[in-house]
Design a protein around this nucleic acid. Structure first.
Lengths: 344, 344
DNA sequence: CAGCGTGGCTAAACCGTTTTAGCGGGCTGG
DNA sequence: CCAGCCCGCTAAAACGGTTTAGCCACGCTG
């Protein structure tokens, strides 16, 4: 029953040809290397018959390429990351690359472990949403000449390739949109994460409200627990206590989900009168009653840019050109939740 | 700037010792192999200084072990799977194994691709929730003498190691619980997946209601789309049309979430009068108002059993003993949603 | 002083591929 | 008639580790 894995040498022996010949045929270089049609056929038939699968470790060791990319995000379960993952996977696949996904939960130790794991296994490139404290590890990768692209957030002090959106501008416009619809007491509900993307969103909000002489109310929910319950307690207290609030701008989608549930379950506020905008769109917000206005990041474009850069880096492995910085702009999708309403 | 990756030979050359010596020291066999303390120290200091990371491809090629396990489920974003994943990861980690997670979305092609990807890369073992049509591929793995354990569901016609829960009994008890609390028209809301776990849950429900002469109403929601919106349309229609229903038993957690949202948003039924039980507990159900009764699978135990078996298989790689079948029992957690209520 | 053990190290084989260099034989052209 | 070319194939090195077998020098024993 127990079958030893087949190797090229086994095949060569069985067919009375050399390992070289088998390798040529299996790599589609039969014609080019002047192997006779007869031998090509014999090799192909036999390998198919025994269901031969090459040992990629050996191949990668020899070629120096694994044809594997790593896509590391905060939480691959999050809709925003999952969507981009799928886009990237499709492009990568069509170019002969496989993609491994992993979540770092924005934790440095976990990030480091994962980077190490894959670095040691010689993956060809990394697309990363960095946790706050792994700047040095990223630098180390780059020193080793391995393609790294950051996205969603980056390190201002470290020159790397990255793809982000203009969070400041998007946040500012979303806030203005609430103001334009008559809301005057806008809460900004965000995480305690102090990385570029969140800081920019906060600044966008703050500038928009202060320009109009409106008050700024910020709730920072610690990043912990699982999405389903993250910050429910804090949110509940906040909405119960802050009666002055007439609208809320959520800086990230999982907070919005918790927020909506809290509001609905506790009836502290009426969803129909509260103005709501969220960062990062998803189906739930579209289908929700009322539908929720959202800052939609250009997922398709982000994924495409990431892979465009990655493939370029993989091609020009030698010459290290300038670092590429891409900043895309997000789109505000206006839905029921943020439009001017009858005031009570 | 560009640094070639360090190899053991580089280190050996730099320190004027042999590669063998370096390897011994790095593997902690210095003492055992009678390497002098002085040399051990020099090697350790130097490797630390240059931040040497071994090439795991080369190591694995030689040793035949990658120290990597694969954990493949339907959707790693799902709470139930994610929890088990974490438990497994912790145990594996403590034994020197890393775990790679992946989602097959219950799709055969995707499953096959993933199995192939990792098989070719020589991972040491698989823990799998199989999609319906990959029986042959699983068999192939087993033929190649690589440890495979199925869980959550299995192939009745294929003898493999597996860990499951007694879905029939759990489902039966959950249904009986609703009956005992006075519900007489219980809907069973499930997926169109026809694998063991779902079939058993269905049978459990059917037997429980027919024994009492109660009607059986089954809604099958196709497995597609993303969790957030899966089956919303169908569920909405169902609850709108089926006015006779006084309770619902959901066969899987994401359907419950969609169901709750639909009921809440459309007000077709009152959450307070409807009896509800769901398969697979999570924080949301606990915190929900009303809190939702759930069949809680013993996550910790499942994870531990899986790893216990896996480690055993990895140890006794040679002798193929009997296939191990573990069936655990689930616990019904009674909460507000299923208790006898004032009837209107 | 032969023989033996042991401390401290290393040469070389090996894992399964890819790839470079090249071999022998038949055919062609000058 | 032979130089040169093409055809069809192969030997061997290389990738970066691990592991087996064994070398040499030294001290100790009998």
């Amino acid at each position: 029953m127990r079958t030893k894995r087949h190797s090229i040498k086994d095949i060569a022996k069985a067919l009375n040809v050399s390992a070289t010949t088998v390798s040529f045929v299996l790599n589609g270089k039969g014609k080019e290397k002047k192997i006779s049609d007869e031998v090509i056929k014999r090799v192909q038939d036999y390998t198919r018959e025994i269901n031969y699968k090459p040992n990629m470790l050996a191949r990668s060791l020899r070629t120096g390429k694994t044809k594997i990319l790593v896509f590391m995000v905060e939480d691959i379960g999050n809709h925003f990351f999952a969507r981009i993952a799928r886009i990237i996977e499709d492009i990568a696949y069509s170019k002969g690359y496989r993609v491994l996904f992993c979540s770092n939960e924005n934790d440095d130790k976990r990030s480091r472990d994962l980077l190490n794991l894959f670095f040691e296994r010689q993956v060809d490139g990394f697309i990363i949403i960095p946790s706050p404290g792994i700047q040095a590890d990223i630098e180390e990768l780059i020193k080793n000449d391995i393609p790294v692209i950051l996205f969603d957030r980056y390190f201002p002090e470290l020159d790397t390739h990255y793809v982000v959106i203009d969070n400041y501008e998007a946040s500012r416009r979303a806030t203005r949109h609430l103001i334009d619809n008559g809301y005057r007491d806008i809460a900004f509900i965000t995480t305690d994460v102090v990385q570029t993307q969140m800081l920019d969103r906060l600044r966008g909000y703050e500038d928009a409200v202060t320009e109009e002489g409106l008050p700024a109310t910020v709730l920072r929910v610690p990043f912990e627990g699982t999405d389903a319950v993250r910050g429910r307690g804090l949110l509940q207290d906040f909405f119960t206590d802050s009666h002055h609030i007439d609208s809320a701008f959520f800086s990230t989608n999982y907070l919005t989900q918790s927020g909506l549930e809290v509001i609905r379950d506790t009836n502290v506020k009426s969803l129909d009168s509260l103005g709501i905008v969220t960062f990062d769109d998803n189906d739930l917000f579209r289908i929700n009653t009322p539908s929720i206005s959202a800052v939609a990041q250009p997922l398709e474009e982000i994924g495409q840019e990431l892979m465009r850069i990655m493939l370029q880096l993989l091609k020009n492995r030698n010459k290290s050109a300038e670092h590429i910085h891409v900043t895309l702009s997000a789109k505000l999708i206006r839905r029921e939740s943020s439009l001017a309403k009858e005031r009570v």
